[in-house]
Computed example of a mutant assay.
Amino acid sequence: MSPVPALVDGFGRRVTYLRLSVTDRCDLRCTYCMPEHMAFAAARDRLGVDDLYTIAGAFIAGGIRKVRLTGGEPLVRKDLPALLERFAGNLQRGELDELVVSTNGSRLAQLAGTLVGSGVRRVNVSLDTLDPGQYREITRGGALADVLGGIDAALAAGLKIRLNTVALRGVVEGQIDALLRYAHGRGMALALIETMPLGDTGVSRLGQYLPLDAFRRQLETRWTLTASPARSGGPASYVEVGETGGLLGFITPLSCNFCAACNRVRVGSDGRLYTCMGHEGSVDLRPALGVGGAALDAAIRGALRHKPERHGFRVAATGLAGGIGRHMSVLGG
């Protein structure tokens, strides 16, 4: 049997990274992600483990080397261990380089061992502040102690962790030094992410937005930042912090567009393929399920031919423009 051709989009970019959302549900209500009273998709619209894995398998056959499981919050899905077990086989056979999970950390203490046992070696944990009251306000009710306990459990289980911090204006300026010391003191990298105009959350996007190019210059007045060749397979560019020896990443969809090197696509828990996070368009892969591998492969390749060159997010005088109606929880960022 001849090998399956690599997955390539219409601009010649090879696609090697799949972000697979297993649920849009979350146990938090972060102000930059969703409104306080979020309407989630009906359970009947969420694919089962078999269908999610079939879709992922088609991508793996086409050369995907990295799969990240996202949400919503992926650890709230009760049958997640069954899906992890499937991917463990791909890792063992050398068909995947890595399986990674993004989580808010609230259930990490209970599931860290399960992740490690399935071959997960690295997780990203969302953490925007080390102040319990501020954390509760940002997440609309979350408990910081649960996340910190989950991080401790994950580190003890042998997982590598990168903390993801949304650069919220009025929050990150007062928290960044403590977050750097906390992360680097435990051997974790830290990445700052600009807020993006995804869905109506009931909070001003422009009020939250802090351009990271300017914020980096502020950091350089008190921290020694040296460009690092480190890469994690995504859009983050890293520097090494001289005073701590740790890595600090910058993810800048608005202040410094990174689309030219895009190597990823996203699939929602309902089976819709999104070739760009910053566009409304998607392709429903469900009709190809059960028809045969060739139909699924053709649907994927057809969608990739229309993958946009770049997202449409931009900063305007009246707010963050180019926004879309879909909430971040649908695809996990």
Score class of each variant (00 low, 15 high):
residue 2 S to I: 05
residue 6 A to G: 15
residue 6 A to L: 15
residue 10 G to S: 08
residue 11 F to W: 15
residue 13 R to M: 12
residue 18 L to E: 07
residue 22 V to E: 01
residue 23 T to Q: 06
residue 24 D to W: 13
residue 25 R to V: 12
residue 28 L to C: 00
residue 29 R to S: 14
residue 30 C to P: 08
residue 31 T to R: 15
residue 36 E to Q: 15
residue 40 F to A: 07
residue 41 A to E: 14
residue 42 A to F: 05
residue 43 A to V: 00
residue 45 D to E: 15
residue 45 D to I: 00
residue 49 V to D: 04
residue 51 D to W: 03
residue 51 D to Q: 14
residue 52 L to Y: 07
residue 54 T to Y: 02
residue 54 T to F: 02
residue 57 G to F: 11
residue 57 G to P: 01
residue 62 G to A: 09
residue 64 I to E: 01
residue 67 V to N: 00
residue 68 R to Q: 03
residue 73 E to G: 06
residue 75 L to H: 02
residue 77 R to Q: 05
residue 80 L to F: 09
residue 81 P to A: 07
residue 85 E to Y: 09
residue 85 E to P: 03
residue 89 G to S: 13
residue 89 G to R: 15
residue 90 N to Q: 14
residue 93 R to Y: 01
residue 99 L to M: 04
residue 108 L to P: 00
residue 108 L to R: 01
residue 109 A to P: 11
residue 110 Q to H: 10
residue 110 Q to S: 13
residue 112 A to R: 05
residue 112 A to E: 09
residue 113 G to R: 06
residue 116 V to F: 06
residue 117 G to Y: 01
residue 117 G to A: 06
residue 122 R to L: 13
residue 124 N to M: 05
residue 129 T to R: 10
residue 135 Y to D: 04
residue 136 R to G: 12
residue 144 L to K: 08
residue 144 L to H: 03
residue 145 A to R: 11
residue 151 I to K: 06
residue 155 L to K: 14
residue 157 A to C: 08
residue 157 A to T: 08
residue 157 A to I: 06
residue 162 R to Y: 00
residue 164 N to Y: 03
residue 166 V to F: 07
residue 168 L to I: 12
residue 173 E to S: 11
residue 177 D to Q: 11
residue 179 L to Q: 04
residue 182 Y to V: 01
residue 188 M to W: 06
residue 197 P to G: 04
residue 197 P to S: 03
residue 199 G to I: 02
residue 202 G to D: 10
residue 205 R to G: 09
residue 208 Q to P: 00
residue 208 Q to C: 02
residue 209 Y to S: 09
residue 210 L to Q: 05
residue 210 L to M: 02
residue 212 L to Q: 11
residue 220 E to Q: 15
residue 226 T to E: 15
residue 229 P to V: 05
residue 234 G to L: 09
residue 239 V to R: 06
residue 243 E to G: 03
residue 243 E to Y: 07
residue 245 G to K: 06
residue 261 A to W: 08
residue 268 G to T: 14
residue 270 D to Q: 01
residue 271 G to A: 05
residue 276 C to E: 11
residue 277 M to A: 09
residue 278 G to W: 13
residue 279 H to R: 15
residue 282 S to T: 08
residue 284 D to K: 03
residue 286 R to C: 12
residue 299 A to G: 11
residue 302 G to E: 10
residue 302 G to L: 05
residue 304 L to P: 08
residue 311 H to N: 08
residue 312 G to P: 03
residue 322 G to I: 03
residue 328 M to Y: 13
residue 329 S to G: 01
residue 329 S to I: 00
residue 330 V to T: 09
residue 331 L to Q: 07
